[in-house]
Design a protein around this nucleic acid. Structure first.
Lengths: 234, 234
DNA sequence: ATATGGTCGATTGCCGACAATTCCTCCACC
DNA sequence: GGTGGAGGAATTGTCGGCAATCGACCATAT
């Protein structure tokens, strides 16, 4: 073994050599936002954050600008940056965009589906069916995410994958969206089966339709839970 | 005339009171990139740019981070930022995304088209037909852009408009895309008429199809001009 | 002649400090 | 009691400087 071999254990040093401090802290704050540590509408104090991460305000501000461009935070001059809070109307718009992009994913996939991919997808269906039957939401949710990630990755379009993920992330910034996914496990999985069947048929527009409608129905479920919350609030 | 009166001519200073120096220089560099002053692959020297704009490197670096997140430039640690150069494969992916989003625009518009909007759209068609017949590409191109901008704006979805514009902008960063639009003026306008007709019919999926296929055909025209260039190069 | 090693200039990454603005508090006044 | 304004604390916007890193060029040895 050569002495010049890269050291696998120096993850922190290697990271700082590869990425800049700015990108590291950007990812960290993104994680805190999506993880719920930082809540929508909350103000991000530059000085406090810089101290917490043991760095100066310069790189932190650069990270903020990047997060702003990506839609995670909002910058108000001389007032500071706030975690983006997405109103319901905009969430609906994002659902539409997401369904359009997801529909494209169905279209692309129907044309390049391999036997191996079909096996993987059916495996997802079986496992999710089982969890849906057991009403195990805790386990169903991440598997559902993984299923969707598999699909958009399998399109082979990095751009599509990035944009789709961007929409999914942004929907997390809508306060009203908490507990949306709680209802309709089996319903959702029925739609998944329709999607996979459409892909297997090789019919492009049928796949498009199945994928598009899946997100549109998620949007409708979102709206109905919204209405339920409104009624309850009265 | 009072000495404290705000100076109406100081557009630059006034701008600085409203937006930050960072956002001003970001827009300026974006303009320089899209306008062709800064070419894809070109390196952006922080020191030079800061001097040219008469500011320090801090705000400039923040602007760079934002432009990076928006896909206009690429940042390489310790080496600098470069104007993003989009390879052909990625341009094709973007065309697909753009057609999916544009298809959604057609869908939304078919449901909310007013008589007034229809009049505006038909006016566009007439003017563009005329310019196409005169082969006046110089005048046709901006009107074509305006027509598309009208459509995505009329959807009422700010999110859709922003994302669509983002795709259009990014396509400008593909070197191979120069002179794409040169061919097929009348062809393109025939598709425009199909789109407006579909909208007027109120048929949602027909509108979707017309809008989607319009961009898909633009993608095909892009591919064919690419092939022509390849043949010519041999 | 090519490859290896070292030095130097240029440029970026990061930091601390100062200036400008906003926000909060408190007091005077109506 | 409520309203308006002055003053101070907190926070952001911007700047210049230092250290680290990279690329280019040259010297030297094989």
């Amino acid at each position: 073994m050569s002495a010049i071999e890269p050291q696998p254990e120096s993850s922190e040093l290697t990271t700082l050599r590869t990425s800049s401090l700015t990108s590291v802290v950007e990812k960290e704050i993104e994680r805190m936002i999506l993880g719920g540590t930082l809540k929508p509408g909350e103000r991000l104090n530059e000085f406090q954050l810089a101290n917490r991460f043991g760095m100066s305000r310069g790189p932190l501000r650069e990270a903020m600008r990047s997060l702003n461009a990506r839609g995670f935070v909002e910058v108000v001059r001389n007032r500071g940056v706030f975690v983006r809070q997405i109103p319901v109307e905009e969430a609906l718009e994002i659902y539409d965009l997401r369904s359009a992009v997801f529909g494209l994913a169905g279209r692309l996939l129907a044309d390049r589906l391999t036997d191996e991919m079909l096996v993987d997808l059916k495996s997802y269906l079986v496992r999710m069916d089982q969890l849906a039957e057991e009403q195990d939401f805790e386990a169903y949710y991440p598997l559902n995410l993984e299923f969707h990630a598999y699909l958009v990755t399998a399109t082979g379009s990095k751009t599509l994958k990035r944009e789709y993920q961007s929409f999914v992330d942004r929907l997390h910034l809508c306060r009203a969206r908490t507990l949306v996914q709680a209802n309709g496990l089996a319903v959702s999985n029925h739609e998944h089966r329709e999607m996979v069947d459409a892909l297997a048929s090789g019919n492009v527009s049928r796949a498009h339709e199945a994928f598009f409608r899946h997100v549109q129905r998620a949007k409708l479920r979102f709206v109905s839970t919204l209405r339920d919350a409104d009624i309850r609030r009265d």
